[in-house]
Design a protein around this nucleic acid. Structure first.
Length: 330
DNA sequence: TTGCGGTTTACATGAAGTAA
DNA sequence: TTACTTCATGTAAACCGCAA
């Protein structure tokens, strides 16, 4: 009967006479949800919005608290000792982050890899480190759990396969993810006292349709601040774009803008009609690229267009407040 | 070999839960 | 109430693969 008790409680199942830890499938979805704290929820939701997050960013964004929270004497010691505390604090945060992710992994909510495939491909004598930074993703279960929490309607739900395929363009999605994190943890915090900025959301892969549901445009992400929609187009000049050899860069941007124009024209939804197209060009070294987009916008929409261009989301927000509010005498 | 950076493990501690 | 168990956490040490 002692054995009976053992098998009834799977968290204490024994193997070879020794207790073992619970494994991934030992947790039901309900249990996994029960065990999530606020930080872990925030993490999962952000992971959903960003698709992927590297470990170092996880540490600094969610786990790195100020050193004096953990080491009371921090404020009273000299700089050298302070640096030691900061280092200790960082290590503590890293460990905490890893343990958290291990737990989430054990409960089947996230997955992660750190192998660099190209490095492994080389002969042993020629390769350097084969593991790089660990990247985290949501698992199938994690996706479902977050979608339930965010109350995502069925037709907007993501398929795990699709999300997995996005990993092939990890750099692109991470570039977008950084914009989201920037917004959430820098700009929206600093704008917190401005009521208009409190109600906002981020939709990483959502289409915008015209009324007839025939013509569609798919921005890289949609940012909604109150009633204002921003269709975010991330433009990385390093990214190879497949196109006919007769098309120049400018033409392709223009084509994209024309598509937006057509969708907006075909829509009676005022939110869509008033939407702003925001081109974020993070690695625009020369102004010309920014100007080219501007020129294309003039051509497609005319002089008073609603196309904003910037190197980062801050530029866009500043340009937006210029555009929106001379009435808003800040 | 030695040192480095990332990762895992051992151990101590305290909080919370549980059976007697 | 007491003794015991479980779990999360912080710290330190061990471990691992690799480069110099």
């Amino acid at each position: 009967m002692a054995d009976q008790g053992k098998f009834d409680r799977n968290d204490q199942a024994e193997e070879g006479g020794r207790k073992r830890k619970r494994r991934a499938n030992d947790y039901s979805i309900g249990e996994a949800i029960d065990l999530l704290n606020e930080r872990e929820w925030r993490l999962l939701v952000d992971l959903y919005k960003c698709r992927c997050i590297p470990q170092s960013v996880v540490v600094t964004t969610y786990f790195l608290d100020s050193p004096d929270l953990y080491y009371e004497e921090y404020e009273s010691v000299d700089n050298l000792a302070k640096a030691a505390f900061e280092e200790k604090n960082r290590k503590r945060a890293v460990l905490k982050a890893r343990r958290t992710f291990k737990r989430l992994k054990d409960r089947g909510l996230v997955e992660g890899t750190s192998i660099i495939p190209d490095a492994v491909d080389l002969p042993v004598a020629r390769r350097g480190r084969v593991t790089g930074e660990t990247w985290y993703y949501l698992s199938q279960r994690g996706l479902r759990v977050v979608e339930k929490r965010l109350e995502i309607p069925d037709d907007s739900k993501l398929s795990k396969v699709e999300v997995d395929m996005e990993r092939a363009k990890k750099e692109h999605y991470w570039e977008l993810g950084k914009i989201y994190l920037d917004l959430r943890y820098r700009w929206m915090v600093s704008f917190n006292d401005l009521k208009q900025f409190i109600d906002w959301d981020w939709y990483p892969s959502e289409s915008v349709w015209g009324d007839n549901a025939v013509i569609e445009v798919r921005p890289d992400a949609i940012l909604r601040i109150g009633e204002q929609l921003f269709c975010i187009e991330l433009d990385r000049s390093t990214e190879p774009i497949q196109r006919s050899p007769f098309h120049t860069e400018q033409v392709s941007i223009q084509k994209k803008l024309e598509r937006y124009r057509d969708v907006i024209k075909a829509s009676t939804n005022t939110i869509i009609r008033n939407s702003i197209i925001a081109f974020v060009i993070p690695d625009a070294v020369y102004k010309t690229r920014l100007l080219n987009v501007g020129k294309a916008a003039d051509k497609v929409f005319g002089i008073n267009h609603r196309v904003l261009i910037g190197r980062n989301i801050e530029d866009i927000l500043i340009a937006y407040s210029d555009l929106a509010g001379t009435s808003n005498n800040e």
